[in-house]
Amino acid sequence: EGPGLGRSAAPSEIARFDISVGPDGVGLPPGSGTAREGRMVYEARCVACHGEKGEGKPNDRLVGGVGALAGQKPATKTVGSYWPYATTVFDYVRRAMPFDAPKSLRDEDVYAVTAYLLHLNGVIGEDATVDAATLPKIEMPNRNGFAPFAPGD
């Protein structure tokens, strides 16, 4: 039992601290974007590291490998082929990308570039609007690809 020195956090303070987005969409901010808009963001802020259309080089490939995870050969694990939730793309890009200036994108741009990555992977159309309402509903190709670990696995 402690001295009880925690200070009450005000809702506005919590809102400032809380940068995470859950798979249910909790935490998604206002705004929206499309792949068409996102392409410009990508080419301005991402292409130098992730290559033309997310093909990779010098850094992680972000596109491809969908439906080809089984087998013994090295798998192409990308946002499209491997990530189970589209909300994670928004959450991760907003907090960690671009690598050289994380958290510098406006929420609008994060929505747009998220839409672009999903579109490049064939998950959504070029003009589909991605926002707090639609993003959590997107069915990712590998949505059911994960099993919780149990001893012996």
Partner: peptide, 25 residues
């Protein structure tokens, strides 16, 4: 408005959250 976390904590704040980037350290 849709403010991260605060909804869960049971109280919704009026101010707009990080419209132009995140307010972090």
């Amino acid at each position: 408005a849709f403010i991260a976390g605060a909804a869960i904590a049971g109280a919704v704040a009026a101010e707009p959250a990080r419209a132009e980037g995140l307010a972090v350290e």
